[in-house]
């Protein structure tokens, strides 16, 4: 039971952290320059937004769930299961970020999700 709970936290918190990072960067606006100093200035401006800190907190929660899982569960179960985040990420992108996912992108995401599980379990 605790394994399922921690796996759920790992996948949901990690993916939702990424989705919040995306929303934050979209609200900051497109990084227009690739000059390191300008990139740093534009990226640092994202740290003024509470959503950036919420995203980092969720990432930290996912990381600690991962560490906790590794202390009792098999790596061969935990690591491939994290491939679920690709499918959850696609669903979150559609409903939370309002991205348009064409059938081709859905098929690609599902193949990658299975592929990552195979590579990590193999």
């Amino acid at each position: 039971m605790r394994t399922v709970l921690c796996l759920t936290i790992l996948v949901i918190a990690g993916t939702f952290g990424d989705l919040l990072l995306t929303r934050t960067m979209k609200s900051v606006g497109e990084v227009k320059s690739v000059h390191p100093r300008r990139v740093m200035r534009e990226v640092m401006s994202a740290f003024r937004l509470p959503s950036m800190w919420a995203a980092l907190a969720l990432q930290a929660l996912a990381f600690f769930s991962f560490l906790a899982l590794l202390s009792w569960a098999d790596v061969s179960l935990v690591v491939p299961a994290s491939a679920l985040s690709y499918a959850v990420g696609a669903i979150g992108a559609k409903y939370f970020l309002r991205e348009t996912l064409s059938p081709i992108r859905w098929v690609g995401v599902l193949l990658i999700s299975c592929g990552v599980a195979f590579v990590l379990a193999g």
Partner: peptide, 30 residues
């Protein structure tokens, strides 16, 4: 063999995702 199968699935998947538009939401400039 399982890893090679995974590499193949990822390569096909990345190829498919790469064929779709990189951005489908509105662009906002900084």
């Amino acid at each position: 063999l399982a890893r090679w199968a995974g590499v193949l699935l990822i390569t096909i998947g990345v190829g498919l995702v790469g064929r779709t538009p990189a951005r489908t939401t509105e662009l906002r400039t900084a």
